[in-house]
């Protein structure tokens, strides 16, 4: 079920990149896609009945039931990277808007100015 949801999110994100020429919308598409991927990777490390891999007095005896923490660590890293990329992309988008007064990539890509 959760994998289906992640697949759906990836496809929605891809559709956003396919169909839009607006920089902001493309970036949102990329973000949705990354969200789907993150959920997918989380689901890879999960199994039914698993508990969060945090070592407390309660969970000490049940460490065998921990879900895979590596998948979660990877997702944390990829969330941070996604944040950095979104920030950079938005800065570029602002810059494009300041120069061309538009967010439409099709409009600025057409004109050759050299």
């Amino acid at each position: 079920m959760i994998r289906l949801a992640s697949l759906l999110l990836i496809l929605i994100g891809l559709y956003g990149i396919f169909s839009s020429r607006n920089v902001i919308k493309i970036l949102i598409g990329v973000n949705v896609m990354e969200l789907g991927v993150n959920i997918f990777i989380i689901s890879v490390g999960f199994f039914k009945g698993g508990i969060a891999p945090i070592l407390t007095a309660d969970s000490f005896s049940s460490a065998m039931k921990f879900v895979d923490p590596l998948a979660q660590a990877m997702v944390l890293t990829s969330i941070v990277i996604g944040l950095g990329i979104t920030a950079l992309g938005l800065v570029f988008a602002r810059k494009i808007h300041a120069q061309y007064d538009t967010y439409d990539l099709g409009a600025i890509g057409g004109g050759k100015d050299d």
Partner: peptide, 22 residues
Amino acid sequence: SRSMYDGMLYLITNIAAMTFFL
């Protein structure tokens, strides 16, 4: 001005590709 588009195209396509990789 021209390089804004080139850089943006580079960024988005490569990010999408690396998402596939992920």
